[in-house]
Design a protein around this nucleic acid. Structure first.
Length: 431
RNA sequence: GGCGGGGUAGCUCAGCUAGGUAGAGCACCCGGCUGUUAACCGGGCGGCCGUGGGUUCGAGUCCCACCCCCGCCGCCA
């Protein structure tokens, strides 16, 4: 571990014995001034520790600069570890010297700040204890996802973010000016991953996707991190097995390695048991109806219906085989029931709703052309995608997982905005 | 795209029902305090009441228009 400008991190210093000499570098998290003594809570990336500043040890000049330093000033402190029951956590540092490295005058974030103010100041709010915990949980979830793919025979493949045509509807694309031509920000890497399976068989990517949906809800971002995988020779069942393995590992990895962070957020999270329950769309409609939701077979599952279904289970639940009309053109119709497709959504519990969407893809050229036409799309736009069905096509399937939705569920966050460092929503592009 | 809530001090809000001198807490500044734990005590600074128009002797408050923010639905991961 690197220790730039310091001998110990705050959390390391807490574990040292009485009399140990330390040099700490961090930020002023809290400051309590009395007449002749100042208590500073020094924060760094690992935690915080109280620093006691008194004139006899550090002299009048440094006492004055400590007195003048505002919250979030960066400081380097040298001192001696003391065990004292009056200190938070029973350990503190008696300062011999305190250097203010970067002043902080009138730090704008205070207790009681509102949601919008904190979002306007997200570049500063990242320093808060709760954002610290969330960023670490997100990092752990990402690490766990890569770890699971990498140890299960998947190869990572990167797809372009600038694309020439839509994967799904055109209405949700951000258009960009690409040297005078129209291009778009990708809404999914699925088609590129489908191309890659003919070389690597089982592939994944973790990168941003962009959706110009005018959705103003606690579940939507316009830019989100998309965990996508595609598997050659996989059927619907295979897709569900992969999703279950991935989501199960992400959940248990965060529960295990992110216990302290979850605790900070006040989140009690027990990773779900596997296998996850699997129900058909038909059963989901029955459950929703039984719970009084106004829904007919053939409708897509409304948010209300999704919530009604997911509340029946205390783990994520797979809902498979939706009506063809409710899903995108590339989903494979069920050979035994052509009115439904071999797709699957994973609904997270606690009313979070859909975190994964996927299924088996159409691998037959003629059927795919037919479905493109039925949806009123232009076959020309899918030329290279159709090519994949002309040269050694294979049954295959895949899925996309919303990282922020998954983190929101695991961390118990009230809004998807909290699950990303700098959220992009319909009304926010800064900071 | 449809429905609902909101905009007053740097921040969080009260005041609007019933029009009559712009309020509180926090922050900040000054003073006090050598063991604070979101320190405390005393004093001080701080306002285009979202914007524009209207009614009125008088508008933060009533009326009209517009702007912005938030949530729910639709759509999705």
């Amino acid at each position: 571990m690197f220790r730039f400008s310091k001998t110990h991190y705050a959390s390391e210093a807490l574990g040292l014995g009485e009399g140990s000499r330390v040099r700490l570098a961090g930020w002023i998290f809290r400051k309590r001034e009395l007449g002749g003594v100042i208590f500073i809570v020094l924060r760094d990336s690992t935690g915080s520790i109280q620093v006691v500043v008194r004139e006899p040890e550090i002299g009048p000049s440094q006492l004055r600069s400590a007195r003048e330093a505002g919250l979030e000033s960066s400081i380097i402190v040298e001192g001696v570890i003391r065990k004292d029951p009056r200190a938070p956590g029973g350990t503190e540092v008696l300062a011999n010297s305190l250097e203010v490295v970067g002043e902080s005058d009138n730090y704008p974030i205070r207790k009681g700040a509102g949601e919008e103010f904190l979002l306007d100041n997200r570049h500063l709010h990242l320093r808060s204890r709760s954002m610290w915990a969330i960023l670490r949980i997100r990092a752990e979830a990402l690490r766990a996802a890569r770890e699971w793919f990498d140890s299960n025979g998947f190869t990572s493949v990167e797809a372009p973010s600038i694309v020439g045509a839509a994967v799904e509807g055109g209405a949700t694309l951000f258009e960009i000016n690409y040297f005078g031509k129209k291009a778009y920000l990708t809404q999914s890497s699925q088609f590129y991953l489908e191309a890659a399976i003919f070389s690597l068989e089982n592939v994944y990517t973790i990168q941003p996707s962009f959706r110009a949906e005018k959705s103003r809800t606690r579940r939507h971002l316009t830019e989100f991190w998309h965990v996508e995988a595609e598997m050659a020779w996989a059927d619907l069942n295979g897709v569900m097995e992969v999703v279950e393995g991935l989501v199960g590992h992400m959940a248990s990895a965060v529960a295990e390695r992110g216990a302290e962070e979850l605790e900070i957020l006040g989140r009690r999270f027990d990773p779900p048991d596997t296998p996850f329950p699997r129900i058909s769309y038909d059963e989901a409609v029955d459950i929703a109806k039984r719970k009084g939701v106004d829904i007919e077979w053939g409708d897509d599952l409304s948010t209300e219906a999704e919530r009604a279904v997911s509340l029946e289970f205390d783990s994520p639940v797979f809902v498979h085989r939706y009506p063809k009309s409710a899903k995108a053109f590339y989903h494979m119709p069920d050979p035994s029931r052509p009115e439904v497709v071999l797709c699957v959504d994973l609904l997270a519990p606690e009313g979070i709703g859909e975190i994964v969407g996927g299924g088996q893809r159409i691998h037959d050229y003629d059927l795919l052309v037919q479905r493109i036409r039925e949806e009123g799309l232009n076959v020309e736009d899918y030329k290279w995608y159709l090519d994949l069905r002309k040269y050694g096509s294979v049954p295959h399937g895949g899925f996309g997982l919303g990282l922020e939705r998954t983190v929101r569920w695991i961390a118990g966050l009230p809004h998807i905005r909290a699950a990303v460092p700098f959220p992009r929503t319909i009304t926010r592009v800064t900071p």
